[in-house]
Each structure stands twice: as C-alpha cells, then as structure tokens.
Write a protein that binds this DNA or RNA. Structure first.
Lengths: 200, 200
DNA sequence: CCCGAGAGTTAGACATAACTAACCGATAGA
DNA sequence: TCTATCGGTTAGTTATGTCTAACTCTCGGG
C-alpha cells in the first residue's frame, strides 16, 4: 500500500509523514522501519540513510506537529479581542489542525508521554503544560471580567478544554471513522461553553 | 520491581493485573511476557502455563475491566430517579472505577481499538457503542422533559460525556501524576452540565 | 569525462519477543 | 505410598526489529 498523496515530498519528509500516520492509526508498536519502508516502496535499510535511529524519526515527528500546534495557538490568542473570542479562536484553530493531521498531536502526546525516553516525555509534558498555562491565563482574565464562572479552578478549566478535544480524538479513533473528527465545531464549542443542561 | 499489593491473588490474576498496569502506564509495546514475569518474580515461560498466548491475556484484561464498567453503569442508571440524577450517578460510578483501575478502561479502548486484531476491536467498539447508546437514551429523555438542551444531538452529547472522562485520563497520563485522576468530581460534573461560562 | 555524494540495494550481526519442550519439585488424591 | 497434575525452571526455536557494511546506480559539477 503506497502513501496517500505522496506528491513532491522528499523521502525524508515522507518518512516523517507515514511514520506519524502509523503511530496515530496503529500505535507505537507498529512504528517500525519495515512498516514505514513498505509503504514508501523502499527497504528498511534505506530509512537509516535519512535518520540515524528510529528515535530520531519520532523526535522529528513530535517537533513538527507540536510546534505547528503551539504556533497556531499563539496566533489565535493574539487575534481574539474578548476572552470568549480568544477561547473560540483557540478551539477553532486547534480543531483545524486536528483535522489536517488526523488527530496527530493528542495521540502522539498520549503514546509518547508514556515512553521511557526522557526526551520525548520532556518535550510533550512541557508542551501540554505550557498550553494549559496559556489557556489558564485567559480563563483568569475571563473570571476577572465576569464572563467565566468564578467557582471553577482555572487550571481545571484549561484541562477541561484540552481534554474535551482529546475526547473527540478518542471517539474518532475508537469508532474507526475516516472523515472529520469534529463534525459540528460550533455545537462542540457551545457544549464546552454552556454545558448540556437547559438554563433555568 | 515487585507488584504493588500482590496480596493473595493467584498468579493468573496477578498476570492480568500487572498486564493491565503495563498497558496503561507504559503502552502496548511494553506489554511483553518478560516484562510481566519480571514484576512477578517468575520467568517468562511460566506465563504460558497460565495463558496459551499473549493475546489471551489481553482478552482477559479487556473482559475484566470492560464488564466491570458496564455493570456499574447499568446499576447507576437504574438507581437514578430523574434524568439529571441518572447522569450524575453514571458519571460518579464511572469516575469511581477510573480511580480504582487507574484509568484502565479508556486507555485499553484507545490502545486496543487500533490493533489489527478483530476480536479486540470488536469487543471494544461494541462496548463504546452500547455505552453511547445508553447515555444517548437518557439524554433524549432529558430533552423530552426539558432539562437538557434541545439544540444538541443526543449522540454528540453522549460522546461529549465519554470524551470528557477520557480527557481527564489523558491529562492524568500525560502529566505523569500518581494520585487521583479526578480531584474534584463535583466541579468536573458541573462543568459538563453547565459549561464554563457565567450564565447571562 | 571522471568522481564523489546521495539514495538506494542485499546481507548479515545482534537483541529481543513469543512460544515450546523437557525437566523438576511439591502436593493432593486414590 | 504412588502418581498425576500444577506451576515453576532452563534451554532452545523461530520470527522480527534495529542498525551496519559493503556494494551499486545515478546524476551534477569540476
């Protein structure tokens, strides 16, 4: 089975791409040189012409997807005028990346933060921590101006945010679907903002 | 490193227990006969006196934890009088199991629904599907009686429910914590029910 | 035109995983 | 008391995974 849209990427880039694909769709156990090579129509030995070890591929995968995620988060926070708008933009940009990468970032975080490799763990827990910190900050702003419930812990709210997205990816992966991860982004955002209960 | 509280379980039960522990904390890749055996102070060959294959261990793990989860869900649905109470009890029972098993069920679902083994996938997607169906049904009730927002799709609400919990487990795993998964269950439930925004 | 680098190949070294076979000691029934 | 079974051992077999070495082909620059 060949790569989907293997256009004009270099072999090195293709390795990163299908490598991520494999981790996301089949798990770390299936992330092997032979598995990647087969999909690219080369031999496993050729992989090591581009990367000196399998770990190096993972490192490249992490850096690629995580940095993409952070950058778009920063951008959307800057663009938003009100607290609500900031959070909305943040969610939307996150959802966009999710769709583009088929949920790569959350799955990678989940898979690799449990690995024994301190480098992977370091980058990823760091990423989640700083992401949480950013959202937490906005939430505090919102509490100060009265738009966000004051009885909630800002960090918990931040993790609820991140967790909700992860939950969507979870559902996507478990149900074995192939289309969009989040069909109705507005409804999803509305659930996070307003809950599921009718207002009294 | 020996098993934590290896009381008076049979070796077979211990294998299931540490097997699940390994999958949850370190991932499927580390789920090996030697890894399990080391923690039990036996040799890897001894594992195969109790199970005829590694897959059989996984099957036993899945059945143990998933059936536990389903049973407690059914119980709490029956106990609840109002829709809100049903959902609350459901969440609380789910959280309880989560704490007891250190997030085993969601992690197992995530890890194993991506495996190529149709047996695992079948059991797990089935489980999630029926769980979703159950919640979905309650949500529809709630919409009929006016307690739950009518503008939301019941299945989406159900998956939001399940996903929120998965999100908590995600946070727990990524942050490498060891204590409780959900510190403040009431606050968590309140976020799902009422959202994060102040009511206007 | 040559030659070196890049990107492949095959072959193989080495480690580890799953499982089997043959053996062994305790222990519970007959 | 004899013996079969249970649960453990050691020592393999086979398969697979990572990575290296040595070789080949192609192609661009001097």
């Amino acid at each position: 089975m060949a790569v989907e849209n293997g256009e004009n990427l270099s072999t090195k880039e293709k390795i990163v791409k299908v490598g991520a694909q494999i981790i996301v769709k089949e798990g770390l156990k299936k992330f092997t040189a032979k598995n990647i090579a087969d999909r690219l129509g080369i031999t496993d030995a050729a992989i090591f012409k581009h990367f000196k070890s399998m770990d190096d591929i993972i490192l490249e995968i992490i850096n690629k997807y995580v940095s993409q995620c952070i950058n778009s988060a920063i951008q959307s926070i800057e663009k938003g005028r009100t607290v609500q708008e900031k959070l909305e933009l943040l969610l939307k940009s996150h959802i966009e990346i999710l769709e583009e990468t088929m949920g790569a970032v959350p799955v990678l975080c989940f898979e690799l933060s449990r690995s024994e490799d301190e480098r992977f763990k370091g980058i990823l827990t760091n990423f989640v921590e700083s992401y949480k910190e950013k959202i937490s900050q906005i939430v505090k702003e919102g509490q100060a101006e009265g738009s966000i419930r004051k009885d909630l812990d800002p960090e918990d709210v931040a993790m609820f945010f991140i967790g909700s997205i992860q939950g969507k990816v979870f559902a996507y992966v478990v149900s074995n679907k192939t289309g969009r991860i989040i069909d109705d982004a507005d409804q999803f955002i509305s659930m996070i903002f307003n809950g599921i209960m009718e207002k009294r």
